[in-house]
Design a protein around this nucleic acid. Sequence first.
DNA 1: CAGTTTTTTCACAAATTTGTGAATAAGATG
DNA 2: CATCTTATTCACAAATTTGTGAAAAAACTG
Lengths: 176, 176
Amino acid sequence: MSETTSSSAPCPDEQAVARFVERFALDLAQGGFPRMAARVFVRVLVSEDGACTAAELAESLGVSAAAVSGAVRYLIRVGLLVREREPGSRRDHYRVRDDMWYEAFARRDEQLGGWEETLRQGVAALGAGTRAGSRLDETRRFFEFLRVELPKLMDRWRAQRDGHGAAPEEDSADSP
Amino acid sequence: MSETTSSSAPCPDEQAVARFVERFALDLAQGGFPRMAARVFVRVLVSEDGACTAAELAESLGVSAAAVSGAVRYLIRVGLLVREREPGSRRDHYRVRDDMWYEAFARRDEQLGGWEETLRQGVAALGAGTRAGSRLDETRRFFEFLRVELPKLMDRWRAQRDGHGAAPEEDSADSP
DNA sequence: CAGTTTTTTCACAAATTTGTGAATAAGATG
DNA sequence: CATCTTATTCACAAATTTGTGAAAAAACTG
């Protein structure tokens, strides 16, 4: 490695970046993300401005405009990207939200609420007195717990990120 | 032998249970679960003992033994079921773990650790000084936060579940 | 160690998902 | 309003996933 010395300049090794994009996208896909959406998302994430046009995404990923369109629709729906249209330009820009992970977890909560409802019906079908019924109800309470606690956890993340370092409160996860 | 549905006896409406199994399994599949694994898991969950044989599962779900085999392998790997072999019997029993959700989240942590490592490489590729690099590093810190905090959250769940079975917090989601 | 029963493996078929190219719609500009 | 440019939709092809039947392997019994 002698010809391309881009270690200290603001010129990232594009090849290494591309490798990272594919790898992290694969990680996310593993975790239940649609594949193309994962790739598009990571591409935006590694862009210097945190925003890309559809054309840039299609070009850098080597995929069709249609694929990008579908992916950004998904990503906007789950709250990881926002669409921006600058007045002077015809191109939309897709930008990562600054509190993207907060948003992602917020959507999770909706899902949890739905699951709780399903479980309620299950408890009713089995009978609350049965062993199976009470097992199911414990599961419901677990999801309820998550639905209540995850937003709190996200608030703590926000606080740590924004205020951070200086005030190490060690009472972080206490129940009053 | 079963023509009437006695609603107050410990004889659950099998049809309603079957409906619930399919619906909750669908919910879980929505959330990234393999479909068959979801169905098998819910079937075990609604069994009175919390354990089933492969034959029972295949019969009640109307699927092949091979499908059950694959599903339980997955479920055991992610820690939601354990295999039990009773000495006298030839059949394995597949039992839901009592702290199944704890286990499920524990595995999530491994995944989070992997993602952090990937992100570290991404930061290196982009350069820590760049905007993209610092954005990526914030993402890494978020996952790190989760990896540390989720186990604590699970401990709190365990404590709440075991501890106050008698202390009723009436903040439960009770919407008539 | 033979005989059964249960579980797993494997090749293949069915079904779902995913991405593309071409056509269409939407939006801005002169 | 005509004309670009950009974004979306749609039918279809490719690829991955998922489930099955049959055969093999494993495990317990007598």
